[in-house]
Design a protein around this nucleic acid. Sequence first.
RNA 1: GCACCCGUAGCUCAGUUGGAUAGAGUACCAGAUUCCGAAUCUGGGGGUCACAGGUUCAAAUCCUGUCGGGUGCGCCA
Length: 601
Amino acid sequence: MTDLATQLAGACSAAFESEGLEARWGAVKQSDRPELADFQCNGCMGAAKQAGMNPRELAAKIAPKIGEHPSIERVDVAGPGFLNIVVSNSALAEQATLIGADDRAGGGAVDAPEKVVVDFGGPNVAKPMHVGHLRSAVIGDTLVRLLRFLGDDVTGDVHLGDWGLQMGLLIVAVKDDQPDLPYFDAGNQGPFPAEPPVTMVDLSRLYPMASARSKDDEAYAKRAQDAVAEMQAGRPGYRALLQHFIDVSVAALKVDYGFLDVSFDLWKGESDVDPLIAPMIEELKSKGFAHEDDGAWIIDIAREGENVETVGKDGQPRLKNPMPPFMLVNSRGATGYHATDLATIKDRIETIGPDRMLYVVDQRQALHFEQVYRAADKVGYLSMDRLEHLGFGTVNGKDGKPFKTREGGTLRLADLNQMALDEATLRIGEAGLSGDIGEDEKGEIGKLVARAALRFADLQNQRTTNYVFDLERFTSFEGKTGPYLLYAAVRIKALLRRAADEGVVRGEIKVEAAEERKLVLALDGFALALHLAREKRMPHFVCEHVYGLSQAFSAFYSACPILKDGVEAETKASRIALCKVVLHQLEAGLGILGITAPERM
RNA sequence: GCACCCGUAGCUCAGUUGGAUAGAGUACCAGAUUCCGAAUCUGGGGGUCACAGGUUCAAAUCCUGUCGGGUGCGCCA
């Protein structure tokens, strides 16, 4: 199905073409001045300018032509040449009916679906996730849901950090903790015990200790580096230990992700591409893409105008537009995340064959991905325009600086989840649920409210900006929050239950009241919102839509009686049908955002 | 120093190819419930869109510069 704006744009474009002008001037959007019209077309000004015409005269010619469109009630020319379009009530009613019957609730579909890999999450093995991981998880998961909803073939990959120095630190720390384990016997080829020697609690105690110690204990850091090198070289005990670390960590990660309803198709990590690294290095060396520099193997990715040598004010030489090289192998002979990320691209091309890869990773990694993408492009794996780094801003405290706990440490995602749950439970208690809801259901509702609060709070911000984390505001039932959306959905569900009890069946939708018109216009904006969200990779467009729809419903609900005494049967049937359409789209939109509404709350 | 992100109401944030009177939420003020869930709705005040130039019929939006904040900048990931 097609939204009204697009249908009207078709009529406008045809009108422009009949005047010998370009079709693109026929773009139509919902009106900025709802008191004047439902839709507007601004093309007359631009087209008239280009053709040397008077914009108002042009508008006067275009208006009657589009006025013939069956959905259009009236077309006015206003101001310097705006076309203000009012659509008929019957067109709105028909549109609402179509949305109700549409699998995608009017959300449209992509013209050319793509095969896409979304790389998000990116948790490190052994390191508990912190607030910073919230954004990648929630934004990435939402993009997966969005693209999939619109018809793309999507694979989400968590891309664990399980191959770098942190594993070496952990190996050393466990060795110091339990030196007699078989994993530390260099000659031991296995097999090794199936039971992990450590728990997540151990890991989250050992890692911070080891990390801190390595910063001012050089010998300790060297041991960790050596352990990494040995692990990467394939030492069986270390590899077995690595697998335990991964298994133990993944189990814990799934708990935190589960709370947020974030899921992955693949739980691959850096270590999975290990077998590909050596042949890839050989390939790149032999093809002449990599060359030696200061003992390291690098790929030069600088472009014209970059790394230009100049002299600074202090007389020291400087690089203008610096672009560090792609580090394939470092001077110690080890590989870092340049190599694993490049190998991962190669692996995905060979095993999945996507048209495109999206990386939902902190904005601070922008340079890194620029380097990796240039390298991938240069060596012919995948062209740069098919590799997108979708950076996002930091989660800040009220002081505008990255969020910290009261003690000044980073806040764990698990604790964040718990805080949200506590806050949501508290709010539910304040609001007072109806008496017959048991403790189990109450607990479930609390989780759904907390999840809605967290996800919506994060997603409603434009992806690239930082945002201020304020749990109290996010969990509030008032205002632009996740819980508000749940309330709107739950209220419709309650209404539909009551309608069923009273034997009110949905009937033909009729659109008459101003609030009904606005509600249907809100419904009609779904396709555009999803389209923009996909095109820009920005989930907040979906949030804006879903919130606007909820508001339009609330206004409708308050102005238009539905099941009250004295309402005519036909009106009841129409309004119940309309409510059903709203719920259909609201749940589709919330589903994309990863938010689930309970039956009652 | 160089590069990227950002600067919009007291606060938190929207604002698709440049369009009419720059919008939400919150806070504040005033209303609405004998009736569908008031966790709601209606209305009000509140703005030099950081600043200065430029492009044009039209700029929060595009260009240049300045100021202010954040982030990154060869072998940690």
